[in-house]
Simulated scan of single mutants.
Amino acid sequence: MARRDCCNIFLVLLFARYVYSNKCPQDKWGELCNSKCGNCMKPPCDKTTGHCIGGCSGPWLPPHCTQECKSGSYGVNCSETCGHCKEGSLCDIRTGQCQQECEPGWQGNRCDKECSAQRFGNECIQRCYCYNGVDCSKGSGECPGDCSPGYHGKHCDKECATGYYGQDCSYRCGMCSKNETCNAETGTCYNGCMTGYTEPYCKSKHEATSVSPHNLPHFLSWILIPTMALIQLWDIIASFH
């Protein structure tokens, strides 16, 4: 008899739980309907567990959708990860926008876009010039090898000083016309050389032919032999008249 009474009591409790849980107001759940549903996308919540069946309506942690996103996440159901915010600072749990600047090497409101090729630093506003177009470190800007001709410095972002060119700006420009500087990459002069120097680098002088006692016989032979040949040709022509 006692066992039957126990079974009856258990059934009564189950029935009471069912009745209470299904008669709770739309925003309540639980055996006594004393728990409030969270921020559900599609209310009501499950009357027994309190879970939001259709997910959360915003930056709330499922399944109950009563707690805001934890640090490092944002968006509906906290399903998005914050970008590269500076020094690990938080992002807005609704929009994902970083509350401070981005880490060097990243850009965008959410700091989730890496710098494009040959760009680096804060907001990717600096440019590097690595040899053969190789990309530099997005954060530090350091090149893995040499700089492109015409540039120098730790980040290969400094142009050669006036009058210098080439790899690491280690070569001096030649004698460019009007004392102009040369092309910092190739070393060629833009508008030719000063008088007496040869293009393209304007570093070598013209080889001028000079007449001296040592080369006078050779020099005269250049003039006399053709002249004598012309005189003989003229005499032959005149003999026919």
Rank of each mutant, 00 (worst) to 15 (best):
H155V: 00
A16S: 12
H155P: 01
Y74S: 15
G139I: 02
C82A: 06
R110I: 11
L224N: 02
C65K: 12
Q67S: 15
C156F: 03
W234H: 11
E199F: 02
E114N: 13
K113V: 15
E142G: 09
E87M: 11
S89C: 00
E103H: 09
K154E: 02
L11I: 00
W234D: 06
N191M: 06
H206A: 14
H84M: 05
C136G: 04
W29H: 12
R4A: 13
V12Y: 00
T227D: 01
R4G: 07
K158I: 08
C98E: 08
K86W: 01
K42C: 01
H155I: 00
C7A: 13
W29Y: 15
K205V: 13
E103D: 10
P226C: 10
K205C: 09
L32H: 04
I125V: 15
Q118K: 14
S212K: 09
H64V: 14
L14N: 03
I237N: 11
I223V: 13
G96V: 12
C45K: 07
R94I: 12
A16K: 08
K203R: 00
L230N: 03
R3N: 08
N109Q: 14
D157W: 05
M1I: 09
E101M: 14
N22G: 05
Q107P: 01
Y129G: 06
P43L: 07
Q100K: 10
G88R: 02
E123A: 14
P213R: 14
G75N: 04
K86C: 04
C40G: 08
Y197C: 07
E68D: 13
L220P: 01
I236A: 14
G108V: 10
F240I: 10
N8H: 07
Y165M: 06
C85L: 08
E199K: 02
E80Q: 03
H214F: 06
P200L: 02
E101F: 13
L14H: 01
A2V: 07
Y131K: 15
G83I: 07
R119C: 06
N183V: 08
K205L: 07
G139D: 02
C176P: 03
E142L: 15
C85I: 08
T95S: 15
S204Y: 01
T227M: 10
L61K: 10
L61T: 09
G75D: 03
T66Y: 05
A238H: 00
A229N: 08
L32P: 02
F15H: 05
Y151M: 04
C37L: 07
I236M: 12
G174L: 01
M1S: 10
K154Y: 03
N122D: 09
C136E: 01
N132R: 12
N39A: 11
E180M: 13
W106Q: 11
P213N: 14
K28F: 03
L233F: 04
T186R: 07
C193D: 02
Q126V: 00
S204D: 03
K23M: 11
N191Q: 10
S116M: 14
G72Y: 07
D135N: 15
S35G: 04
N8V: 14
